[in-house]
Amino acid sequence: MTVNEKELAERVIEISGVNTRKCMKCGKCSGTCPSYDEMEYHPHQFVSMVEKGQIKKLMESKSLWTCLSCFACIERCPRSVEPAKLIEAVRLCVIRQQGANHMKACSVPDSIDENMPQQAIVSAFRKYSK
């Protein structure tokens, strides 16, 4: 783990408020995740990879954009580890970088239709851009 990556890991722990040591590696988060098949790293892997400091791999992962923020892993975690908070923190590590927005305003008109509620667009902007 590089110095930079170690700092990143500390940052993720700090802003997520997650204590990865509480995890008993039961896998219920990944058993419950509705977006499992859309992810290459799954909720339980976020916990162990953050613990190991492997943040860069996670930052490059498509999992960040396919997590639904449905809070199922948070609700059902028997140890209150709450992996979605780690996914959110890693996502912020990406989009807080200069020019690293995942969703750009110019691409939005192509993704929407006349029925789509404002709520969808606002949510996506909050999740995918800074």
């Binding site: 977006s35 954009w65 639904l68 449905c70 199922a72 939005v108 667009i121 949510s123």
Partner: peptide, 19 residues
């Protein structure tokens, strides 16, 4: 009480479709 796909509809319509 399972997710409809939420805002990922802007990322990948298929996710919301499946959910």
């Amino acid at each position: 009480n399972e997710c409809c796909g939420g805002y990922t509809v802007l990322e990948d319509k298929k996710i919301a479709e499946r959910r």
